[in-house]
Structure formats: structure tokens, C-alpha cells
């Protein structure tokens, strides 16, 4: 549980982060979205005291972050950044072992943890343990960067544009892997991004920031359905909103009775995918299958009803 209360940061009298209050529940992913200069990175960096707040408090599991020296706090919080920040003079294993070493774990425990994480991130330990960072591809560096952040098993992980340097295909894969790992480990994640799609895909909750203020902090569905103001609307991209709404619901949630011809679509697929398939195959409705059985159909009309302004 991360509780941020009335947090502000002023530089030369100018508020970069202005009276922000929000809470992230255990095991949730909170995505902070905003344009550059919106204060989102500063907000993130105040949580592990890379930036000292001007006023306000941050508590992690009820404990004020000011209660201990910054370096001790940071050892308990994972931190992954854009451009990965791997130490170029240490090999992969040593990079991942950074925090465990700082915490004074014994060698065998560290080695075991490194191998465990490499396996978790689909990097063969034998092959990758002793590679230097410059011998890795962009996607591999990014994975090692996240593995390093998770090395000491932190309850909280902070991520600053972690996928910013990756190309679209690798990014999509990295996002899915992150969701998968997060589900398995139950880590609470605060993630900063400028990409609304990424926020919608990853976040259980999204905080939209501009000019140091949080404009709206809500679940993705709510943000898309009821943007708090014009800025949030602009961040959503008004033209794409219909499709964003469609992508929030699955075919299973919109299934209705009745027959439909042709190839069925799975219940887990989003309505966006279902609608695209109807347009592509010139059908008015698609059969929906769940666990191998047809459970009903989705119609074009149902999709269109879902995608109109509520």
C-alpha cells in the first residue's frame, strides 16, 4: 500500500508537483500518464526519495518514507528506468545482484536468486549470466534492468518509462511479460509513461497528470467513459475513444443469444477485435466460443452501442 498525501515539489518557487494525493493498493499497477514536463517523473522519484519532497507525506505500508536514510529506503523499493541504466562494467549476474549485495546476502543465495530471475525473464542463466551489458540486445537489456529492480524481492516497484527505448513489437511482448510476472509475484507497481495505450494496457488505475496536478485518478474504464476534463480527453485522443471503449470489454461480456455463421471468436477477445473481424469478413454477427463450446453471438449493433458516448 502506497499512500501519497498532499505531496508537492517546488523548484525556485514553481510547483513541479502540486498537492498530489493518491493511494495504490497492494498488488495493483498504477500508471501515471502525462506529457513531458507534467511532473510525473518527479512524482515517481519522490517515492524513493531521489527527489526530496517540499511538503506532504508518502507512506509505504503505513511507514513514512522519511523514517529511514534514503539509501536504505531505496534498497527496499525496486527501480527500473528508461535506457535500463545497467552498469556497463559489471556482467549481467553482478548487475542483477546489485541490491542483494548491498543488503549483504550470502553468495550462494545471491547466485540462486540471479538464476531464478534470469529464468523468470526467459534468459537462459548458463548463456547470459556472464555477458556484459553491451553484448545484449535492447530487449534483453530492458529485461535485465527489470530483473535487477526485482532482485531483492521488493514489495514495491517503480518504473520510469521502462519500455520507452524499445521498438513496438518488443515493447508489446515486454508489457505482457511484465503483467505476467506482476501477477505471479504480486508486486505493487507505480509506472510512469507518456503513452495512454500503455497505461490502459498495464494499469489497474491511471493517474493523468498535467502541470504538476493529477487531473483524474481512476480505473481505465472510468477514464475512457468519463474523462474528468478536456485535458484527459485530449490525452485519450478523442478520435480513438470509440475503439478504446471497445477494447475495454470482452466478447464474453457482450454475448447475446442467437445464431451466427462462420468462424467463432473466443470469449476472451476484446470487442475491438470482434468488431474488426465483423468488418473484415462482412458479417453482422460472430459466434462466441468459451471452452470449446459456442455460448452465443456478438452483433455489430451490440458493439456500436458499446462504443457510443454514454
Amino acid at each position: 500500500m502506497i499512500e501519497i498525501e498532499n505531496l508537492s515539489k517546488h523548484y525556485d518557487g514553481r510547483a513541479v508537483v502540486d498537492d498530489v494525493t493518491l493511494a495504490v493498493a497492494d498488488g495493483e499497477i498504477a500508471a501515471i500518464v502525462g506529457t513531458s514536463g507534467s511532473g510525473k517523473t518527479t512524482l515517481l522519484r519522490m517515492i524513493n526519495r531521489l527527489v526530496e519532497p517540499t511538503s506532504g507525506t508518502v507512506r509505504i505500508d503505513g511507514r513514512d518514507i522519511l523514517d529511514q536514510p534514503p539509501y536504505q529506503l531505496r534498497r527496499q523499493i525496486g527501480y527500473a528506468i528508461q535506457g535500463h541504466g545497467l552498469f556497463p562494467h559489471h556482467d549481467v549476474a553482478r548487475n542483477i545482484a546489485t541490491v542483494p549485495r548491498l543488503l549483504g546476502w550470502d553468495k550462494a543465495k545471491i547466485a540462486a536468486r540471479v538464476d531464478e530471475l534470469l529464468t523468470l525473464f526467459q534468459l537462459e542463466p548458463e548463456a547470459y549470466r556472464h555477458r556484459m551489458p553491451h553484448e545484449l540486445s535492447g530487449g534483453q537489456k530492458q529485461r535485465v534492468g527489470v530483473a535487477r529492480a526485482l532482485a531483492a524481492g521488493p514489495a514495491v516497484l517503480l518504473m520510469d518509462e521502462p519500455f520507452g527505448a524499445l521498438d513496438p513489437i518488443i515493447r508489446a511482448k515486454a508489457q505482457e511479460d511484465l503483467l505476467d510476472i506482476q501477477r505471479r509475484l504480486g508486486t505493487t507497481i507505480v509506472l510512469v509513461t507518456h503513452d495512454m495505450d500503455e497505461a490502459i494496457k498495464l494499469g489497474n488505475k491511471i493517474a493523468v497528470m498535467s502541470d504538476g496536478k493529477v487531473r483524474q485518478y481512476a480505473a481505465p474504464e472510468e477514464i475512457i467513459a468519463a474523462p474528468a476534463d478536456d485535458f484527459v480527453l485530449a490525452m485519450l485522443g478523442s478520435g480513438d475513444r470509440a475503439f478504446r471503449l471497445l477494447s475495454l470489454k470482452t466478447a464474453g461480456q457482450a454475448v447475446g443469444p442467437g445464431p451466427a455463421d462462420g468462424k467463432p471468436i473466443t470469449a476472451a477477445a476484446s470487442l475491438r477485435e470482434a468488431y474488426a473481424e465483423m468488418l473484415w469478413s462482412r458479417r453482422e454477427a460472430l459466434p462466441v466460443e468459451r471452452d470449446g463450446a459456442i455460448v452465443g453471438r456478438v452483433t455489430r449493433a451490440a458493439c456500436e452501442a458499446e462504443a457510443t458516448r454514454p
Binding site: N48, L50, P70, Y71, Q72, L73, R74, R75, Q76, Y79, I81, Q82, G83, H84, G85, L86, F87, P88, T98, V99, L102, G145, R148, L158
Partner: peptide, 10 residues
């Protein structure tokens, strides 16, 4: 980014 990472890892 390396400086930042060094600080961020505590």
C-alpha cells in the same frame, strides 16, 4: 541513466 540507477538501487 547509470547514475540514476546507482542512486535508485540504494
Amino acid at each position: 541513466s547509470v547514475r540514476e540507477a546507482a542512486r535508485g538501487t540504494g
